[in-house]
C-alpha cells in the first residue's frame, strides 16, 4: 500500500491489555490546571521503568468540568489495577493536592472504583469535611490557599496499551515534523494518550539485551547508524526513525488515533522526505491486540 508516495508496511502493531483511569484537574485558570496536569503525568512514559504510562487527554472548558472552572483531563495506564491505584494516589497527592487552587474529580463514572482523594483526605488531620452530593463523595481538605476539593474515587476500566507506528524519513527534521503533525491531530481523538515526551519516541526498544540485567534494549533493526552492522529493516535512504505509542480505552479508540496520525504523516508525503510507515510487534505472540496498518488505512 502506498499513500502519497509513503509505503505502508504489511505489518502490525502489537498491544497489550492494561488498566486505565481518567481524572479531571481544575484550577482557577487553565494555566494552573495544566501545570498540575503536567506534573501529575510527568515521568510516566513507559511502564518499563515508570510504573505507569500517563498523559494529558485534552483541555476542558469550564462548562465541561464539575466545578465550572477550567480543567484538564488526564489518563493513567498501568499493567494491573493495584499498580494503577498506587500511581494515581501518589501522583494526585504530590502533584495536584500541592498545586495552587487545584481540585480533582473522577473522569470515569463506571468501572471498578479506585481511590482518588479517598486517602488524601487524611492530610486534613481531622479537619477534612466529607460531602455526599448526588451519590458522589467529595472531600474538602483544608490547605493553606483555602480548600482542596477532591472526589473520593474514580473509575478503573480495562484498556489497551502499546498501539504504535513508526515513521521512517530521509532526515531527522523531516521525521520530527511528520510526528508533530501526527500528534497534533491525534490529540483531538478522545480516550487516547501518547505518553512519551511530546507524544514521540526516538528510542524504540526490542525485547532483550546482550546485558543480562536489561529486559529491553535499542531496536537496532531500526537504528539508521547501524545499517551496515546489523540485520537492518532500513533501506539506504532512511536516516531517521521515530515512533508514536498510543494507549487507549479500547482497540477502536487506538484504531482511530492511528488512522488520523498515519494520515497526517502521509499528507506530508514523500515530497517531504517521508518514505515508510511501519510498526513494532513481537511476532504476534505476546499481545492479543493487533493493529494491522494496511487494514487501518484501507
Amino acid at each position: 500500500m502506498i499513500i502519497n508516495g509513503v509505503s505502508i508496511d504489511a505489518t502490525f502493531a502489537e498491544a497489550f491489555p492494561m488498566k486505565a483511569t481518567r481524572a479531571i484537574i481544575t484550577a482557577q485558570h487553565e494555566k494552573w490546571a495544566m501545570i498540575s496536569a503536567q506534573a501529575m503525568t510527568g515521568f510516566a512514559t513507559s511502564v518499563i521503568a515508570c510504573g505507569c504510562e500517563a498523559g494529558i487527554e485534552r483541555v476542558l472548558s469550564p462548562d465541561e468540568t464539575p466545578d465550572g472552572r477550567p480543567g484538564v483531563a488526564i489518563m493513567i495506564f498501568a499493567m494491573g489495577g493495584k499498580g494503577l491505584a498506587k500511581q494515581l494516589e501518589t501522583r494526585a497527592g504530590q502533584c495536584v493536592l500541592t498545586s495552587p487552587t487545584s481540585a480533582l474529580f473522577a473522569g470515569i463514572d463506571g468501572g471498578t472504583r479506585i481511590a482518588l482523594g479517598k486517602n488524601l483526605r487524611y492530610f486534613g488531620d481531622g479537619f477534612q469535611v466529607s460531602k455526599l452530593i448526588d451519590g458522589k463523595r467529595y472531600w474538602r481538605v483544608p490547605v493553606m490557599d483555602g480548600e482542596f476539593l477532591t472526589e473520593a474515587t474514580t473509575g478503573q476500566v480495562d484498556a489497551v496499551g502499546g498501539g504504535n507506528f513508526l515513521v521512517l524519513a530521509e532526515s531527522q527534521p523531516q521525521a520530527l515534523a511528520a510526528c508533530e503533525a501526527a500528534i497534533d491531530v491525534m490529540r483531538t481523538v478522545p480516550n487516547v494518550i501518547m505518553p512519551f515526551p511530546g507524544g514521540v519516541v526516538r528510542s524504540g526498544s526490542k525485547v532483550g539485551s546482550k546485558y543480562k540485567s536489561l529486559g529491553a534494549s535499542t531496536n537496532d533493526a531500526f537504528c539508521p547508524t547501524l545499517k551496515g552492522m546489523t540485520a537492518t529493516e532500513l533501506s539506504p535512504e532512511i536516516e531517521s526513525v521515530m515512533e508514536i505509542v498510543i494507549d487507549g480505552l479500547s482497540k477502536a479508540d487506538i484504531d482511530k488515533a492511528m488512522r488520523v496520525g498515519i494520515q497526517a504523516v502521509c499528507d506530508l508525503g514523500a515530497a517531504n522526505g517521508i518514505k515508510r510507515i511501519s510498526a513494532g510487534n513481537y511476532g504476534g505472540k505476546l499481545g492479543p491486540f493487533h493493529f494491522h496498518l494496511q487494514e487501518i488505512m484501507a
Binding site: D67, K131, I133, D134, Y138, R140, G146, E147, L149
Partner: peptide
C-alpha cells in the same frame, strides 16, 4: 470569608 469550590457542585445538584 472564603470562596468554597464545593458549593457550585452542591447547588448544581
Amino acid at each position: 470569608a472564603h470562596t468554597l469550590a464545593f458549593l457550585p457542585i452542591l447547588f448544581n445538584s
